[in-house]
Design a binder for these strands. Structure first.
Length: 709
DNA sequence: GACCTGCTGCGGATTG
């Protein structure tokens, strides 16, 4: 009985709450955390009580009557800290343990109080920790020098991304100011059996990190619908159908882009006005003003009675508690199976409820991709997570941060700290030393006597407000109506006086633009276009594309499809009927006409991108359409074998070609915030590791088999 | 044919 292992005051908390029983993940976590000193990853679906699963045993086991913060909770979102603050404070208040929020929007006086009397539990972001290391390193050891536990919430959101490497490095740096081993507990959504190793890696010690997994899943019902939309805007038929499907429910609609959330919120509200339906249509994404977003979240969470509809982006995919909704609508395919899992998890969150998802498609490839994601969802596939092995860019960032933290140190000391840090384990001693030499040469670091300090160029980087985060952000215009902020939109040609834009589910006319102050003054109006947003491109995993090909070549009937989507699948099956496909990975349908070759690769975006780069080196102008995973090449089939040989020989000198490309096209390294500061030979390595996928591309080139009708 | 995330310290003016 896990309950009996807890301290009396924690048991009293549970009795007072009148919990009938502990959830499975809670029972498991309590007995393991209380009886061992291992790190644990608690993996289970949203709203399964993971926060309590971690905090009940931690609070039960920890002595808070010693100096220093005892428990550090790290979250990827400020909003989640504010949410969790109430839950954790509720747990702590009878135990007389203090809980302090520490992030960019938290009260300064509370931070000052904590510095005067370091104790209890602290809730913080990775960026605030980075800032503390750089600006007030004495606070780090004062506050966290006697730390017992670190709890990382939504740990899956850190895996396979730069921000996770930064966090991993910070964890190591916190451990380096402690004498005793800090125990790390990660809270995670389900991320697939093969990916737990990456969550373990983040804690810094794979061997002593164990997984507690609750596999309980909910039944999900899906319904596919197809409405072809040729133009830039959604067809009226789709919108009418969408209205019918959502008018009498509590619904989240995910249309994959900010512009489209606005289009949907405004147009559904118009339809609703015409038929005297409810008026509760909202949009929720990063460009909507924070206060407006929070009011939408509060409404969704507290409202029990009214139906509503929120058109949103991935802002409502992560852990913020907005209560339960009846239905999820996905407009065009998600870019990954993981994303589909998270979104579906937002509906029917109460015990025993099934999840309902409507999947709309506006073109045939999107329908096929969506169906592929749904099949993979059912077979419990999740995209593999890859953690960069040689993150030279994060190394530069952390070298500067550590030198600033120490106000300079010997080269031996700096080297030692990097070697102790598991984030940079795969980077060799030779590489570290040669990078330090290069950084001294470039004035990022400076050598004074036997000490290294931050150099003149390094100071510009470290002292910038942008230093604390490892991700990039775009410049924005503030959108203001009669003194009230509506949101932020990126610079675009559409921003002109008298143009209309959609934002926060309303239509606005631009009255004035203040270019200097990056401000747009607007007034409400009745008709408008979507605002334009510019983003990067999505990366579709090759398994999704293989599943698309499998569907096209099979004759399985799917009861989830409506008549028109059934017809579209049938049409695509007919298009590919004559191709004999035996191997989903390497057999590629081709169509040859008038000196051009159309090749369907049915493979991942990174592979297509790498292949496109290699093809361009041969002098061809490959027109890649990643949406349909196809290339059009100005060659005959007879020339293909020779082309394959050329691609292989180009790959032998790939570093040379990437060097030329990086010199000509600086934006190639744009995915990495600090990459542009690296010497070019190191830029080549991170571009190869993180932007392209030549390993799988070469495998495809070696095995590709063109299939004609 | 994309989405998201966070942020110090200081000086000086203003307010209770």
């Amino acid at each position: 009985m896990s309950y009996n292992l807890l301290s009396e005051s924690i048991r009293k908390y549970i009795r007072d709450k009148r919990w009938e029983s502990l959830r499975p993940i809670q029972a498991a976590a309590i007995s393991k955390i209380l009886s061992t000193d291992n790190n644990y990853i608690l993996a289970s679906r949203t709203a399964s009580g993971k926060t309590e699963a971690a905090f009940l045993p931690i609070l039960s086991k920890t002595n808070f009557n010693t100096r220093g913060v005892q428990v550090l909770y790290i979250s990827p979102l400020i909003a989640l800290i504010n949410d969790q603050f109430f839950r954790i404070e509720d747990l702590c208040k009878d135990l007389e343990i203090s809980v302090t929020k520490w992030h960019g929007e938290a009260k300064k006086s509370l931070k000052t109080n904590l510095i005067k009397n370091p104790n209890g539990v602290v809730l913080i972001t990775p960026e605030s920790l980075e800032a503390m290391f750089v600006n007030a390193p004495y606070n780090v050891s004062e506050l966290f020098g006697n730390l017992k536990y670190i709890v990382i919430d939504e740990i899956h959101s850190f895996l396979g991304v730069d921000r996770g490497l930064q966090l991993m490095s910070i964890l190591s740096r916190i451990q380096q100011v402690n004498n005793t081993k800090i125990i790390i507990i990660g809270l995670s959504a389900t991320i697939g059996d093969d990916n737990y190793i990456e969550a373990k890696r983040l804690t810094g010690d794979i061997d002593i990190t164990k997984i507690l997994l609750d596999r309980a899943k909910k039944e999900t019902k899906a319904k596919f619908k197809y409405f072809n939309s040729n133009g830039a805007e959604l067809s009226l038929e789709l919108l009418k159908d969408l209205y019918k499907e959502t008018a009498t429910n509590k619904v989240l609609i995910f249309p994959n882009s900010r512009g489209r959330t606005e289009e949907i919120a405004v147009k559904l509200r118009k339809i609703s006005d015409l038929v005297k339906g409810h008026k509760l249509y909202f949009s929720h994404h990063s460009s909507v003003d924070k206060e407006i977003r929070e009011s939408v979240e509060r409404f969704a969470k507290n409202n029990k009675r009214f139906n509503f509809c929120i058109a949103c982006t991935s802002t409502l995919e992560l852990g913020i508690d907005i209560g339960t909704v009846d239905k999820i609508v996905q407009i065009d395919s998600t870019h990954s199976v993981s994303s589909l899992v998270q979104r579906i998890g937002r509906s029917g969150r109460r015990e025993g409820e099934i999840s309902i998802v409507n999947l709309y498609a506006t073109d045939k490839w999107s329908l096929l991709q969506s169906l592929a994601c749904w099949n993979l969802y059912k077979s419990e596939f999740l995209e593999p997570i890859y953690t960069a092995k040689k993150p030279f860019d994060i190394l530069l960032h952390q070298l500067l941060s550590i030198l600033k933290q120490l106000s300079g140190c010997s080269r031996t000391e700096l080297f030692k700290r990097i070697r102790l840090n598991p984030t940079f384990k795969e980077i060799t001693e030779v590489e570290i030393n040669s990078l330090i030499d290069k950084f001294i040469e470039l004035d990022y670091l400076e050598k004074i006597d036997r000490e290294l300090i931050v150099g003149i160029e390094g100071e510009y980087i470290v002292n910038s407000r942008e230093f604390y985060s490892v991700f990039k952000t775009e410049p924005n215009f503030k959108v203001v109506h009669s003194g009230k902020k509506i949101g932020n939109i990126p610079f675009s040609p559409q921003i002109r006086i008298d143009e209309n834009i959609l934002l926060a589910a309303k239509i606005w006319k631009i009255k004035d633009i203040d270019f200097k102050g990056s401000k747009i003054i607007v007034i409400p109006t009745n008709d408008g276009k979507k605002p334009l947003f510019f983003g990067g491109v999505g990366n579709i995993h090759k398994r999704i594309r293989e599943e698309m090909l499998r569907i096209v070549k099979s004759n399985i009937e799917y009861s989830e499809l409506d008549d028109s989507s059934c017809a579209v699948v049938a049409e695509m099956r007919n298009d590919f009927k004559e191709f004999r496909i035996n191997n989903l990975q390497f057999d590629c349908p081709i169509i040859e006409k008038e000196g051009t070759l159309l090749i369907y690769t049915f493979t991942g975006s990174k592979i297509n991108r790498s292949l496109s780069f290699l093809l361009s080196l041969t002098g061809l102008v490959p027109s890649l359409d990643d949406h349909s995973s196809s290339f059009e090449l100005a060659i005959n089939k007879s020339g293909f074998n020779q082309l394959i040989q050329e691609l292989k020989s180009k790959y032998e000198n790939i570093n040379e070609y990437l060097l030329i490309e990086l010199k000509e096209n600086e934006s190639l390294i744009g995915f990495s915030k600090w990459g542009k500061y690296l010497p070019l030979d190191y830029q080549i390595e991170i571009v190869k590791e993180r932007f392209y996928d030549f390993e799988n591309t070469i495998e495809l080139i070696n095995n590709i088999n063109l299939v004609e009708t």
